[in-house]
Design a protein around this nucleic acid. Structure first.
Length: 256
DNA sequence: ATGGCAAGTAGAACTTGA
C-alpha cells in the first residue's frame, strides 16, 4: 500500500500535474493540501475518471484539503472536533484498514505574530485530537504539509533559518509532541542523501540551487512503522512547467 | 539589508504563502 502527500498550491492550476503524477505513480492514497477551491468547484469527475474516489473540504482562496483513494473511503471526518476552525485544514478517513489523516498545518507567517500563535494553538489541539484517533485506530498515518522542518539537517541553511518560522524551537517542540504520541517520521526510518527537501522557494532559483526545507511529512504509528519499507520524496514534478513549490512524499507499506 | 515568485481576488494592487 502506497500513501502519498502533496501540497499542490491550487488544484485549479495543478490538476493536470496531479493526474499526470498519478498516472506515473499510481499510489493507493494521495492526500492533497492547498486546493484553494470551494467544494462546488472541486474537479471530482476528472479524478474519478483517473480511477480514484475522492473526499474534500475546501474554502475560497486559501487552504483546502482532499483525500484521493483507489480503495473505498470510510468514516470521513472534516476538521478537528476539538478545535473550532473556519479554515479547512484537516480531513480524516479510514482506507484499507488504515486511519488516514490529511493535514495542512498553518504557516505561522513569522515568529510571535498572531498567525504564529494560531499555529501553536492549532498544533496543541491537533496533538490532543490525534491522541484520541490513535486510541481508536492503532493503524494511524498522518500525512501533510506540517510547515515545520524537524531538524537542522532538514534546512538548506540552518544558520540563516535559525529561530525563524518553520524552524523555531516552539514549532519543533509542537512536532516533537506528535512524535511523543508514538508517531514516527517515516522519512527518517531510512537512509537518504544529505539535503533532501520537500519544498523550495519559487524565488532566487531556489529549486535549481536546492535551497529548500523538508516540511512535508508522513507520520506513522508503531504498527505501520513495522510495515513501512520505504519513504521517498519525488522531486520530479518540481521540474515540470509551472510547478507547485512542494514535492510529493510517498511511504510504502507492506501488507499486514 | 532587501526583495526576489506564484496564486487568488479583482479587474490595480493587495494578501498570503514558506
Amino acid at each position: 500500500m502506497k500513501l502519498a502527500t502533496w501540497n499542490v498550491n491550487s488544484l485549479n492550476v495543478r490538476l493536470a500535474h496531479v493526474l499526470k503524477w498519478l498516472e506515473e505513480n499510481p499510489v493507493d492514497v494521495l492526500c492533497i493540501q492547498e486546493t484553494k477551491l470551494t467544494d462546488d468547484k472541486f474537479p471530482t469527475a476528472a479524478i474519478e475518471a483517473a480511477g480514484y474516489q475522492v473526499v474534500f473540504s475546501g474554502q475560497k482562496t486559501y487552504n483546502g484539503v482532499a483525500i484521493l483513494s483507489r480503495l473505498p473511503i470510510e468514516d470521513v471526518v472534516k476538521n478537528n472536533p476539538r478545535y473550532e476552525d473556519a479554515q479547512q485544514r484537516i480531513l480524516a478517513a479510514t482506507i484499507g484498514g488504515v486511519r488516514v489523516v490529511c493535514a495542512y498545518v498553518p504557516n505561522g507567517q513569522a515568529v510571535d505574530t498572531e498567525k504564529y500563535i494560531y499555529k501553536l494553538g492549532w498544533l496543541q489541539s491537533f496533538r490532543d485530537w490525534l491522541a484520541d484517533e490513535l486510541a481508536k485506530h492503532p493503524n494511524l498515518a498522518v500525512l501533510g504539509d506540517y510547515n515545520i522542518a524537524p531538524e537542522d539537517r532538514d534546512v538548506h541553511d540552518p544558520a540563516a533559518w535559525e529561530g525563524q518560522v518553520l524552524c523555531s524551537d516552539k514549532e519543533r517542540a509542537a512536532l516533537q509532541a506528535l512524535f511523543d504520541l508514538g508517531l514516527q517520521d517515516s522519512f527518517r526510518l531510512f537512509e537518504h542523501p544529505e539535503k533532501t527537501f520537500s519544498w523550495w522557494d519559487y524565488r532566487m532559483l531556489g529549486f535549481q540551487k536546492n535551497k529548500g526545507l523538508r516540511i512535508d511529512h508522513i507520520l506513522l504509528s508503531a504498527p505501520l512503522v513495522a510495515r513501512c519499507e520505504a519513504c521517498i520524496i519525488d522531486r520530479a514534478p518540481r521540474k515540470w512547467e509551472q510547478p507547485s513549490d512542494h514535492a510529493p512524499v510517498i511511504a510504502t507499506l507492506v501488507p499486514a
